[in-house]
Design a protein around this nucleic acid. Structure first.
Length: 492
RNA sequence: GGUUCCUUCGUCUAAUGGUUAGGACAGGAGAUUCUCAGUCUCUAAAUAGGGGUUCGAUUCCCCUAGGAACUACCA
């Protein structure tokens, strides 16, 4: 039987790291086993649903380059793939269960349930959950409640005896006593929408899903789902509960740990291949030493056996490392076009950029590439190129390895040597040598000459290498800046 | 509280009865005759604790401890 797996997110928020990790594992498992990857939108919670979330889902998967074989937009033989469009199906199956005596209508108000819950926690009752108040309503009682206009929910009858076991590829057998399963969970809400449990089980069956790969937080509802499959008389798919992605403190990754939405990472200038590579390595490994895996490689070598049991913490620093590595590997043209929006947004260049600006960006890539962790770093790295701000006292005088006198000489003499030689087309090595000689005369290290000049030209303690900076700026502009600094320092 | 799951360097992980317990990120030190970054080299750092089984346990079993998830008309 060929593999069919699905990613079934609920569009109630932006796609986050944990979510796409699940998507990626499903996708890679499908690809590596020659199966199908299906996308299903579980939008049964109309309170929390938002169009923005749905858009974000599509955009994020597209950005990552994850294509689904069946699902919304592309369609497929088991559609529709959006649960809100399958409304009638769930109702039908829920009512079937009621007719067979496996489920029942419940008229309890949210208020009563709330009160029940309060009492249970107050009394530290061992029994948690619904008290099966409506489990044995007579036809008359029901008719009366209906007449009062109360819209019922449908609850599953969970056996109080026995136990339920399911097999998990990663975890092994997981068994739970039926009496420990949340008593009589709601299948169909009073608004007629299914709950997750019902819709999920029905769709997985109807869509021929063979493996259910989802986060470990779903383990507790596993037995309940098995009970549902059994109630319908359906075969239970293979379970594969994925280890969770945690924050630094070992708790479920959430906003307080930092960025979690993929969109945020994208906006900061992370590359999709870095996200894919790193995220896949949390909870999975090929061999313990291979670090770099492209999407194409993963589509081939991903093995379900290599998924771990234990949760993994999300390490932002390692992601940064991957990202800087991928930036370096990417070709210059791509980096240039990725940098452009940040420069536009910073107000450095016009939108769209002029030809000269584009030329500038192109030349900026090489020296900047090695220095970026994320593409947005380009803004600070290139400020000197687009903004002409006179060097500040602070930057000028804290230049390492130079005092005021040396700084003056370095700027005046060094600057003259530098630009004269540059103008006559001398090689960089030669110029460096000349500046080194000057440094020797002054009795300072080379840096004592280079640093003041670079600061004068870039107004920054930390900047691109001097020759790169000058080349980027153009000789005239760079020299003008140097002269301005010389004049400034003369007055001190 | 109840239920279920988890436990190798700070972090992600490799090794499954026999290794000096390996790699990577982060940290530290140094090198690279311009800062930063990068690159290179070196370095420190772990089998949660206690019992078994065994000639031998990171690896198998039990207990303890710690952590996590779930416990909604949310998914």
């Amino acid at each position: 039987m060929s593999v069919r797996v699905r990613y079934a997110p609920s569009p109630t928020g932006l796609q986050h790291i944990g979510g796409i990790r699940t998507a990626l594992f499903n996708y890679f498992f499908a690809k590596s086993s020659g199966g199908k990857f299906i996308l299903r939108v579980e939008d049964t919670d109309r309170e929390r649903y938002s169009d923005e979330s749905l858009d974000d889902l599509y955009q994020t998967l597209e950005w990552l380059g994850i294509k689904w074989d069946e699902g919304p937009v592309v369609g497929g033989p088991y559609g529709p793939y959006i649960q809100s469009e399958r409304f009638d199906i769930y109702k039908k199956y829920a009512e079937q269960l009621v007719a067979e005596g496996k489920a029942y209508y419940c008229y309890c108000t949210p208020e009563r349930l709330e009160k029940l819950r309060e009492e249970q926690t107050k009394n530290k009752s061992e029994y948690q959950g619904y008290d099966r108040h409506c489990a044995n309503l007579t036809a008359e009682e029901r008719a009366e409640l209906e007449r009062q206009g109360i819209k019922p929910v449908i609850r599953l009858k969970v056996p109080t005896e026995g136990k339920t076991t399911f097999h998990d590829v990663i975890m092994g057998d997981i068994t739970r006593k039926n009496k420990d399963i949340s008593p009589d969970p709601i299948l169909l809400k009073s608004d007629g929408f299914p709950t997750y449990h019902l819709a999920n089980v029905i769709d997985d069956h109807l869509m021929g899903i063979t493996h259910i790969m989802r986060a470990q937080e779903w383990i507790p509802s596993g037995p309940l789902h098995v009970l549902l499959y059994q109630a319908f008389g359906w075969e239970v798919p293979t379970y594969c509960h994925l280890p969770m992605v945690m924050g630094k403190d070992g708790q479920k990754l959430s906003k307080r740990h930092g960025s979690t939405a993929v969109r945020e990472f994208r906006e900061k200038g992370y590359l999709p291949e870095a996200i894919i590579n790193y995220v896949t390595l949390v909870g999975w490994s090929l061999d313990g030493s291979t670090e770099f895996l492209s999407k194409e490689q993963l589509e081939k070598c991903f093995k379900i056996e290599n998924i771990h049991k234990n949760p993994g913490k999300f390490d932002y620093k390692k992601l940064d490392w991957f990202n800087s590595q991928y930036i370096r590997m990417a070709d210059d043209e791509r980096i240039a076009s990725l940098m452009t929006p940040y420069l536009v947004k910073a107000g450095f260049i016009s939108d769209p950029p002029s030809e000269q600006e584009e030329e500038k960006i192109k030349r900026l890539v090489k020296p900047a590439k090695e220095r970026m962790k994320v593409i947005s770093d380009i803004v600070d790295l290139s400020r000197f190129l687009f903004v002409d701000e006179p060097v500040t006292d602070e930057n000028m005088y804290i230049a390492k390895g130079s005092d005021l006198e040396n700084t003056k000489v370095a700027l005046e003499k060094g600057g003259k040597i530098l630009f004269d030689m540059l103008r006559s087309g001398e090689a960089e090595e030669k110029i460096e040598e000349a500046l080194m000689n000057l440094a020797n005369e002054l009795g300072v290290k080379v840096n004592g000459v280079f640093q003041p000049i670079r600061v004068a030209i870039t107004n920054s303690q930390v900047s691109l290498p001097l020759f790169d900076s000058i080349a980027l700026l153009g000789l005239d502009v760079a020299e003008a800046r140097l002269k301005r600094a010389v004049n400034m320092i003369k007055e001190k």
